[in-house]
């Protein structure tokens, strides 16, 4: 599979994940939405696509270094790794400007779970795009 296929799968997975994130939060009620449904569905789709694109690119470029055989497991690892890296930077920002950047534990737990979901969706799409594994290879 080439990079383009990974990016395409990443964008599709990301948009679906954005909608799923909205739905998940609507069910859990972890964070009360402040924007309208129309505004949020657009922003969640766009931000999800960006996250999916980044995760797909990371999987394409660094996937072979991740010590798992299954592409789904590698995608979950890549997605969770990126989320943790972003969260650690967020922690640093929170330490520098605590009035501006608040840490929110229930949101953190939900976010980590959602990052695993993004990896799973991406991994499944990549596996489908790659086609069946060669027999007796």
């Amino acid at each position: 599979m080439n990079l383009k296929e990974y990016l395409k799968s990443g964008v599709i997975a990301g948009v679906v994940w954005g909608w799923l994130s909205y739905l998940t939060n609507a069910v859990t009620g972890v964070f009360p939405f402040e924007g309208s449904f129309a505004q949020d569905i657009v922003s969640f789709s766009f931000a999800g696509a960006v996250f999916g694109l980044g995760t797909g690119a990371s999987l394409a470029l660094f996937g072979r270094f991740i010590p798992f055989r299954s592409v789904v497991a590698r995608a979950v690892f890549a997605s969770a790794f990126i989320w943790i890296a972003l969260r650690l930077v967020g922690d640093m920002l929170s330490m520098m400007e605590p009035e501006r950047y608040h840490l929110f534990t229930p949101g953190t737990i939900q976010g980590l779970g959602l990052s695993i979901v993004l990896g799973a969706i991406l991994g499944i799409l990549v596996r489908k795009a790659a086609g069946p594994a060669p027999v007796n290879a």
């Binding site: 909205y22 402040e34 931000a47």
Partner: peptide, 19 residues
């Protein structure tokens, strides 16, 4: 970051620190 306002809900939902 208007850009902040646009993605405010998304960032909270995925657990990133925000206002």
């Amino acid at each position: 970051e208007g850009v902040h306002d646009a993605f405010h809900d998304f960032r909270h939902v995925i657990g990133m620190p925000c206002h």
